[in-house]
Amino acid sequence: MNLKKLSIFFGLVFVFSACKENRYATAEILGKRIPIDKTIKADIAIEKFITPYKKHLNKTLDSSLVYNPKTIDKTQGKLNTAIGNLMADIVIQQAGPVFQNRSGNRIDMVLLNHGGIRAGLDKGQLSTRDAYALMPFENEIVVAELSGKKIQEMLRYLEKAKTAHPVSGIQIEMDNNYKVIKATINKKPIDINKNYFVATSDYLQQGGDNMSFFIDPVNLYQTNYKLRNAIIDYFKTTDTIKSHIDQRFIKKP
């Protein structure tokens, strides 16, 4: 017993002194990346572990929520598109009641960005997966209280952008040089002395897509409502999607 202890002691002394004396230094380094491709066989235990998560996910993602009578995407239309109009209208319909409950005010208009329409919607039954494709990001709907002056800045932005940024609640008419000749909110001309409640995404409100007019609003209201969840909730409570290119944002020929 004692002998064993002693040998452990000497063993430790040896290891300790060996460590102390033998410092190591890097002599050579090999570095590379290895592609994870089909030549590597999947680990069966890991695959099995994923399966129940995957099944539940797919079941939820793929259950049909709403019927879409026609294929729509963001390339159809000039300054307004059926899919963009749908998204902007969904924001008013879904976030409007939340905002009204919290602030006592009504959303006057919506502005989103054309680049934020991440996929089209095919004709047929739509599912949660389609909503994820349309809006993969986690952006939340916010409402910015903007002065009439900032609304004018927004119009100058749209003149420069010449893009079908989705809008709702505002009516914009441009001449053939993209100069705004008429703009109304709630059917009334923009009042420079009035404030407007503009719903958008937190991404755009923070200056995304160079929408600087959003950055410093009179007031900013959070809805804690994700844009994608608003779309999913709309899909769930709607029977058939109605989306059209209309007259809300147009340019004279």
Partner: peptide
Amino acid sequence: LYLGRIDFYLDNE
């Protein structure tokens, strides 16, 4: 998509 691999070889200083 990839796994990075760096091999360090050390020797007595």
